[in-house]
Design a protein around this nucleic acid. Sequence first.
RNA 1: GGAGGCAUAGCUCAGUUGGUUAGAGCACUUGCUUCACAUGCAAGGGGUCAUAGGUUCGAGUCCUAUUGUCUCCACCA
Length: 877
Amino acid sequence: MKKELAKTYNPKEFEDRIYKEWCDKGYFAPDPDKSKPAFSVVIPPPNVTGQLHMGHALDETLQDILVRSKRMQGFSTLWVPGTDHAGIATQIKVEENLRVNEGLTRYDLGREAFLERVWDWKNKFGSRIISQLKKLGTSCDWSRERFTMDEGCSKAVREVFVNLYEKGLIYRGHRIINWCPNCRTALSDAEVEYSEQAGHFWHIRYPVKDSDAFLTIATTRPETLLGDTAVAVHPEDERYKDLVGKMLILPLVGREIPIVADEYVEKDFGTGCVKITPAHDPNDFEVGKRHSLPVIRVMNDDATINAEGGKYQGLTREEARRAIVEDLEKGGFLVKVEDYSHNVGTCYRCKTNVEPLTSDQWFVKMEPLAKPALEVVKNGTVKFEPERFSKTYINWMENVHDWCISRQLWWGHRIPAFYCDACGEMTVSKTDLTACPKCGAPLRQEEDVLDTWFSSALWPFSTMGWPDDTEDLRRYYPTSVLVTGYDIIFFWVARMIFSAMEHTGKEPFSTVFIHGLVRDAQGRKMSKSLGNGIDPLEIIEEYGADALRFALASGNSPGNDMRFSPEKIEAARNFANKLWNASRFVLMNMEEDTPYGLPDVSLLATEDKWILSRFNKLVKEVRLALDGFELGVALSAVYDFSWDVFCDWYIELTKSRLYDKGSESGKVAVRVLGYVLVETLKLLHPYMPFITEEIYQAMPHDEESIMISAFPVASDALDFPVEEAEMEKVLDAIRAIRARRAEMNVLPSRRTKLFIITESVDTFRNAEGFFMKLAGASEVLLPDTYEEEGAVSIVTSAATVYIPLADMIDLDKEKERLAKELEKTEGEILRIEKKLSNEGFVAKAPAAVVEGEKAKLAKYRETEAKLREELKKLENI
RNA sequence: GGAGGCAUAGCUCAGUUGGUUAGAGCACUUGCUUCACAUGCAAGGGGUCAUAGGUUCGAGUCCUAUUGUCUCCACCA
């Protein structure tokens, strides 16, 4: 059924409409046909209250390309969408909102009322990110949309927690952890970001008890002096050997602390003496354990000094530092201050300096879990693409510490541990308990919630119904590919792998397809604070989702960052426009009843066979690239074919036939045009789903939607090597003539006779129209020889073409040009001859390569002979 | 301190297991109101593929070192 296309490409007119049609038709749901192989993907769930940014756009685009191409290749594809509750991020937003609008804190509201606010917020904004994903054209099965805090995922979380607890892999402990004083919660190691900060190195004198001697320590954090319980020196440090075991008087505090010997100290760094503050430094904590030192925590949860700090109580960390340095100076304890720049841990959410401190937290014991997770990557069951990221993963997993999973937040999965104040028992349970199983007294549930990543770690199987034995799990789990950025390999990918291994006994996915970051045109990370973020929705609004997707997919190589620039998106839009207009042209030349599909081979012209043969090559190329996750390579192949081969050549080649109204040959041409265009659209559909669907619907086609049509398969029936080669001879000649005319400034309007001397007479005779249309010919003659003077000669390997342009010819220049060309050709001949006379090459190179070189040599020799002949002629004049 | 990426045209980047004369987009030059498209057409200029070695019949591609640059991990107080 022939439809009209609007005169200009305007994606706004059809993108939303088409998306709705796909949804209504149910195309996004996996095909229930059991005979089809399964291909499944789970979306990296965006933050439920987040806004779509370029990172999402890239991630979703890549996934959609994979999913759509697999669907067209006959897989039963399932793409599970959903969102993450994003504990800290969401809670911060709601608290901020509460503070700004009502001047309240979460404590003013209380836990229950505050959580109601968060749920309201979630319900208000949770659909926003989903609708933004839809604008991109993502083909997720929305009927399976999940949320990390929905009933099913919560059930999975409890199941996992209790299982791990019962196996002894989750424990509660008083440990030193990373604390964010702003978010007022513990953080895992992965949630700490280090940043270089300018600071000072304070050298402080600690007097030795009952002596005039003293030790000088150097520290970047003088305020933690309040919690010092020792000073450590290296056991082999001659300077301090005799002092080990003696006591020091802690300045300002007056506490007696021992001098201990520990290998942790570097003799050559600082003064060789380290103050030990077990409560506020992870290394000191370890030293403290080895020497059974007391642990004195001197800060509150908001990083102000607590009662242990004596007169400094109530001061912030920064205030305390200033006050203490001042007092040290007054007391004569301060030796010197140096400028010092060092790495400080900050909170990945709010960038506040992390305060290491001791507290009661829940941990996952990592060692037993890491083992199978390492194995499965090392033995290739889980493959990283590109492969190098498996190193990053293995390195991290081999050195992983226990995972602190408790967060002092309210928004999240509350830890299912129940305390009995009557008998002191703690019970961990999959279901909520009200009475103590031991003594029957009322219970109190743990206040802490779980790290957000604890639930996302279960995403590949919790979304498919685990722990129940569901049909989805049986059919689609393990999933096929996980697509994500390298920045969350530790947060998420690693944790999914060990969780899946532990709880399902299977890897969560077979391939991890890693992409880089989308940066701005200057190569900077897009960020809110810089204000350099490009809003994908604005791009879609202005250029269309297809253009955005194209811009993100083209030139993007796996694992590498990319820059996003206005030029790129314009180039993408221009390509869409080109396709649109090429399609309009094809449609214009179609009849109401032009059918889909190729006419009989016997009816095909040489150029038809040429384009089919070229298309067939393209199909092979695209499929190979897609199979290897080379999405950018596949796209550029389709781009080049569409623009250069199909539009710039094939369409132009068919014009004379098309303008011969009603001719059989014109009808054949239009069917080939339609066929190649539609099949090319299919190759392109995974990348640009909307425009390809819109055009597909307008053209004669084979399926209800391009989405469910079959991805092209290379076929021997479309291979026409002979015609392809013949056609290339003609195209070579046309290109050469055009170049020559342009060089001589022959106006396009000036048409001339062409005399073509060639052995492929039939080929060139059949191509007469092409020379008229594309090479400025008024008449094409194919004599056996051409001897007249005053003609430009153009030499290609297959033909010598003469253009009588007596008035424009400069004989000397002609000679010079021919001589130059001859020189170049001879150079090439020499190079190939050398190669072919190399015994190693002939013996070791593949036969096809050797044959290729021989063919090339033959071609150059033909050209050389013709050039010599021409030169001789000119010299005789 | 450890690991890794990148270095190819003026700019931004492709280049799949080594195999035509190294490509594209943008920018630049010249010409074109050719009846699909000026978001276009045609022609053109521009690269010793960071440097030095090595492996190979053959290296932009593999190996080693060097330089520059970016990132991640570790954290010496």
